[in-house]
Amino acid sequence: MKILVCISKAPDTTTKISFTDGDTKFDTNGVKYIVNPYDEWYALVRGLELKEANGGTVTTVTVGTAEDEATIRKALAIGADDAVRIDTDAEDAFQVATEIANFAKTGDYDLILLGKETIDYNGSQVGGMIAEHLDQPFISLASKLDVEGNTATLDKEITGGVQTVKADLPLVVSCAKGMAEQRIPNMRGIMAARSKPLKVEASSSADKLTSFVKYQLPAPKSAVKLIDPENMDELVDLLHNEAKVI
Protein backbone atom coordinates (compact mmCIF):
# COMPACT_ATOMS: atom_id res chain seq x y z
CA MET A 1 0.00 0.00 0.00
CA LYS A 2 1.32 3.43 -0.97
CA ILE A 3 0.37 6.11 1.51
CA LEU A 4 0.92 9.83 1.09
CA VAL A 5 0.65 12.01 4.22
CA CYS A 6 0.37 15.79 3.87
CA ILE A 7 2.47 17.58 6.49
CA SER A 8 2.22 21.26 7.27
CA LYS A 9 4.07 23.34 9.80
CA ALA A 10 2.13 25.45 12.30
CA PRO A 11 3.13 27.89 15.02
CA ASP A 12 3.57 26.23 18.41
CA THR A 13 0.27 26.25 20.31
CA THR A 14 1.59 28.65 22.98
CA THR A 15 2.57 31.28 20.38
CA LYS A 16 1.44 34.80 21.17
CA ILE A 17 -0.12 35.95 17.90
CA SER A 18 0.90 39.38 16.57
CA PHE A 19 1.16 41.08 13.19
CA THR A 20 3.60 43.40 11.39
CA ASP A 21 3.71 45.65 8.32
CA GLY A 22 0.55 47.55 9.25
CA ASP A 23 -1.22 44.35 10.33
CA THR A 24 -0.83 42.76 6.90
CA LYS A 25 1.59 39.97 7.90
CA PHE A 26 1.79 37.40 10.67
CA ASP A 27 4.82 38.28 12.77
CA THR A 28 7.02 35.17 12.60
CA ASN A 29 9.72 36.77 14.74
CA GLY A 30 10.64 34.31 17.49
CA VAL A 31 7.86 31.90 16.54
CA LYS A 32 8.64 28.24 17.08
CA TYR A 33 7.13 25.91 14.50
CA ILE A 34 5.79 22.44 15.10
CA VAL A 35 4.26 19.82 12.83
CA ASN A 36 0.55 20.67 12.63
CA PRO A 37 -0.82 18.42 15.42
CA TYR A 38 -3.63 16.92 13.31
CA ASP A 39 -1.16 15.97 10.57
CA GLU A 40 1.28 14.50 13.06
CA TRP A 41 -0.81 12.87 15.79
CA TYR A 42 -3.50 11.41 13.59
CA ALA A 43 -2.71 11.32 9.84
CA LEU A 44 0.96 10.36 10.03
CA VAL A 45 0.67 7.90 12.91
CA ARG A 46 -2.36 6.11 11.39
CA GLY A 47 -0.48 5.93 8.08
CA LEU A 48 2.46 4.29 9.86
CA GLU A 49 0.18 1.82 11.67
CA LEU A 50 -1.44 0.79 8.38
CA LYS A 51 1.97 0.32 6.81
CA GLU A 52 3.12 -1.77 9.78
CA ALA A 53 0.04 -3.98 9.48
CA ASN A 54 -0.22 -4.28 5.70
CA GLY A 55 3.22 -3.43 4.32
CA GLY A 56 3.90 -0.57 1.93
CA THR A 57 5.40 2.87 2.19
CA VAL A 58 4.60 6.16 3.87
CA THR A 59 5.77 9.27 2.03
CA THR A 60 5.18 12.77 3.37
CA VAL A 61 4.53 15.77 1.16
CA THR A 62 4.85 19.41 2.16
CA VAL A 63 4.36 22.56 0.12
CA GLY A 64 6.90 24.99 1.51
CA THR A 65 10.35 26.49 1.58
CA ALA A 66 13.64 25.30 3.08
CA GLU A 67 12.33 26.68 6.40
CA ASP A 68 9.92 23.76 6.54
CA GLU A 69 12.65 21.14 6.61
CA ALA A 70 12.91 20.95 10.42
CA THR A 71 9.27 19.90 10.70
CA ILE A 72 9.67 17.52 7.75
CA ARG A 73 12.61 15.84 9.54
CA LYS A 74 10.40 15.46 12.61
CA ALA A 75 7.87 13.52 10.50
CA LEU A 76 10.70 11.33 9.21
CA ALA A 77 11.90 10.77 12.78
CA ILE A 78 8.42 9.56 13.76
CA GLY A 79 8.73 6.97 11.02
CA ALA A 80 7.86 8.11 7.48
CA ASP A 81 10.04 6.42 4.83
CA ASP A 82 10.75 9.45 2.70
CA ALA A 83 9.63 13.02 2.21
CA VAL A 84 8.91 15.38 -0.64
CA ARG A 85 8.96 19.15 -0.41
CA ILE A 86 7.33 21.10 -3.20
CA ASP A 87 9.42 24.21 -3.33
CA THR A 88 7.22 27.28 -3.06
CA ASP A 89 5.66 29.53 -0.42
CA ALA A 90 2.33 28.09 0.69
CA GLU A 91 -0.06 31.04 0.57
CA ASP A 92 -3.51 29.75 -0.32
CA ALA A 93 -5.36 26.46 0.23
CA PHE A 94 -6.24 26.12 -3.45
CA GLN A 95 -2.61 26.57 -4.43
CA VAL A 96 -1.40 24.01 -1.86
CA ALA A 97 -4.06 21.47 -2.84
CA THR A 98 -3.30 21.88 -6.55
CA GLU A 99 0.44 21.42 -5.97
CA ILE A 100 -0.15 18.28 -3.90
CA ALA A 101 -2.68 16.87 -6.39
CA ASN A 102 -0.29 17.44 -9.30
CA PHE A 103 2.44 15.64 -7.39
CA ALA A 104 0.12 12.81 -6.29
CA LYS A 105 -0.93 12.13 -9.88
CA THR A 106 2.60 10.90 -10.57
CA GLY A 107 2.61 8.39 -7.70
CA ASP A 108 -0.48 6.14 -7.74
CA TYR A 109 -1.12 6.51 -4.02
CA ASP A 110 -3.76 4.27 -2.44
CA LEU A 111 -4.41 6.69 0.40
CA ILE A 112 -3.80 10.37 0.92
CA LEU A 113 -4.06 11.30 4.59
CA LEU A 114 -4.01 14.74 6.19
CA GLY A 115 -5.13 16.46 9.39
CA LYS A 116 -8.66 17.83 9.61
CA GLU A 117 -7.28 21.38 9.60
CA THR A 118 -4.15 23.36 10.41
CA ILE A 119 -4.16 25.15 13.73
CA ASP A 120 -3.15 28.48 12.16
CA TYR A 121 -5.55 29.11 9.28
CA ASN A 122 -8.14 26.48 10.32
CA GLY A 123 -9.41 26.27 6.76
CA SER A 124 -10.28 22.56 6.46
CA GLN A 125 -9.97 23.12 2.72
CA VAL A 126 -6.98 21.25 1.36
CA GLY A 127 -8.31 17.67 1.66
CA GLY A 128 -11.56 18.22 -0.22
CA MET A 129 -9.74 20.20 -2.88
CA ILE A 130 -7.17 17.44 -3.46
CA ALA A 131 -9.97 14.88 -3.70
CA GLU A 132 -11.83 16.92 -6.30
CA HIS A 133 -8.65 17.45 -8.34
CA LEU A 134 -8.07 13.69 -8.33
CA ASP A 135 -11.78 12.76 -8.67
CA GLN A 136 -11.55 10.59 -5.54
CA PRO A 137 -13.96 10.21 -2.61
CA PHE A 138 -13.10 12.38 0.40
CA ILE A 139 -13.82 11.17 3.90
CA SER A 140 -13.68 14.19 6.16
CA LEU A 141 -13.10 14.20 9.90
CA ALA A 142 -12.44 10.51 10.17
CA SER A 143 -11.82 9.16 13.66
CA LYS A 144 -11.19 5.57 12.56
CA LEU A 145 -9.72 4.02 9.42
CA ASP A 146 -9.18 0.36 8.61
CA VAL A 147 -8.13 -1.10 5.29
CA GLU A 148 -8.73 -4.60 4.05
CA GLY A 149 -7.60 -5.44 0.55
CA ASN A 150 -8.82 -2.62 -1.61
CA THR A 151 -11.55 -1.39 0.71
CA ALA A 152 -11.44 1.10 3.55
CA THR A 153 -13.91 1.24 6.45
CA LEU A 154 -14.07 4.50 8.32
CA ASP A 155 -15.87 6.32 11.11
CA LYS A 156 -16.50 9.95 10.35
CA GLU A 157 -17.98 12.75 12.39
CA ILE A 158 -21.37 14.02 11.25
CA THR A 159 -23.56 16.64 12.89
CA GLY A 160 -24.60 15.18 16.22
CA GLY A 161 -23.03 11.78 15.76
CA VAL A 162 -20.83 9.33 13.92
CA GLN A 163 -21.25 7.54 10.62
CA THR A 164 -19.51 4.34 9.58
CA VAL A 165 -18.77 4.27 5.86
CA LYS A 166 -17.05 2.04 3.34
CA ALA A 167 -15.27 3.03 0.13
CA ASP A 168 -12.78 1.58 -2.32
CA LEU A 169 -9.24 2.94 -2.54
CA PRO A 170 -7.87 5.33 -3.68
CA LEU A 171 -9.22 7.81 -1.17
CA VAL A 172 -8.45 11.10 0.51
CA VAL A 173 -9.03 11.09 4.29
CA SER A 174 -8.89 14.00 6.74
CA CYS A 175 -8.01 12.78 10.20
CA ALA A 176 -9.39 13.86 13.57
CA LYS A 177 -9.04 12.79 17.17
CA GLY A 178 -9.49 9.10 17.86
CA MET A 179 -7.60 7.99 14.75
CA ALA A 180 -4.33 7.19 16.53
CA GLU A 181 -2.20 8.00 19.55
CA GLN A 182 0.62 10.52 19.38
CA ARG A 183 4.09 8.96 18.92
CA ILE A 184 7.18 10.54 20.41
CA PRO A 185 10.22 10.00 18.15
CA ASN A 186 13.05 8.10 19.85
CA MET A 187 16.80 8.67 19.44
CA ARG A 188 17.09 5.99 16.76
CA GLY A 189 14.29 7.56 14.78
CA ILE A 190 15.86 11.00 15.02
CA MET A 191 19.26 9.65 13.85
CA ALA A 192 17.67 7.67 11.01
CA ALA A 193 15.68 10.73 9.88
CA ARG A 194 18.91 12.55 9.02
CA SER A 195 19.71 10.16 6.23
CA LYS A 196 16.20 9.48 4.93
CA PRO A 197 15.48 10.89 1.46
CA LEU A 198 13.97 14.38 1.38
CA LYS A 199 13.39 15.21 -2.24
CA VAL A 200 12.77 18.78 -3.40
CA GLU A 201 10.37 19.05 -6.33
CA ALA A 202 9.81 22.14 -8.46
CA SER A 203 6.41 23.76 -7.97
CA SER A 204 3.83 23.57 -10.75
CA SER A 205 3.07 27.30 -10.22
CA ALA A 206 -0.51 26.61 -9.18
CA ASP A 207 -2.99 29.51 -9.11
CA LYS A 208 -3.89 31.27 -5.90
CA LEU A 209 -7.55 32.22 -5.55
CA THR A 210 -7.51 34.02 -2.19
CA SER A 211 -5.17 36.16 -0.12
CA PHE A 212 -5.12 37.58 3.39
CA VAL A 213 -4.89 41.36 3.11
CA LYS A 214 -5.23 42.35 6.77
CA TYR A 215 -5.29 40.88 10.27
CA GLN A 216 -6.85 42.07 13.48
CA LEU A 217 -6.68 40.98 17.12
CA PRO A 218 -9.95 40.60 19.01
CA ALA A 219 -10.94 43.49 21.30
CA PRO A 220 -9.54 42.91 24.80
CA LYS A 221 -12.00 41.54 27.35
CA SER A 222 -13.15 43.86 30.10
CA ALA A 223 -12.42 42.71 33.65
CA VAL A 224 -14.27 39.70 34.99
CA LYS A 225 -17.26 40.33 37.24
CA LEU A 226 -16.96 38.12 40.32
CA ILE A 227 -20.06 36.56 41.81
CA ASP A 228 -20.51 35.18 45.32
CA PRO A 229 -20.49 31.36 45.06
CA GLU A 230 -23.40 31.28 47.51
CA ASN A 231 -25.52 33.50 45.30
CA MET A 232 -26.24 31.78 42.01
CA ASP A 233 -29.54 33.66 41.68
CA GLU A 234 -27.44 36.74 41.03
CA LEU A 235 -25.52 34.98 38.25
CA VAL A 236 -28.75 33.82 36.63
CA ASP A 237 -30.11 37.35 36.87
CA LEU A 238 -27.00 38.78 35.18
CA LEU A 239 -27.07 36.15 32.44
CA HIS A 240 -30.71 36.99 31.77
CA ASN A 241 -30.87 40.77 32.18
CA GLU A 242 -27.33 41.97 31.51
CA ALA A 243 -25.76 39.43 29.13
CA LYS A 244 -29.13 38.40 27.66
CA VAL A 245 -27.96 34.88 26.84
CA ILE A 246 -30.62 32.93 28.73
Binding site: N122, T210, S211, F212, Y215, Q216, L217, P218
Partner: peptide, 15 residues
Protein backbone atom coordinates in the same frame (compact mmCIF):
# COMPACT_ATOMS: atom_id res chain seq x y z
CA UNK B 1 -11.37 33.48 12.27
CA UNK B 2 -7.68 32.53 12.17
CA UNK B 3 -5.13 31.13 14.62
CA UNK B 4 -7.89 29.16 16.29
CA UNK B 5 -9.84 32.24 17.21
CA UNK B 6 -6.82 34.19 18.48
CA UNK B 7 -7.22 36.69 15.57
CA UNK B 8 -9.31 37.71 12.57
CA UNK B 9 -8.05 37.82 8.99
CA UNK B 10 -9.58 39.65 6.05
CA UNK B 11 -9.66 37.53 2.92
CA UNK B 12 -9.70 38.85 -0.61
CA UNK B 13 -11.00 36.55 -3.33
CA UNK B 14 -9.45 37.05 -6.76
CA UNK B 15 -11.97 35.07 -8.82
Amino acid sequence: NVFSGKAFGHVKVST
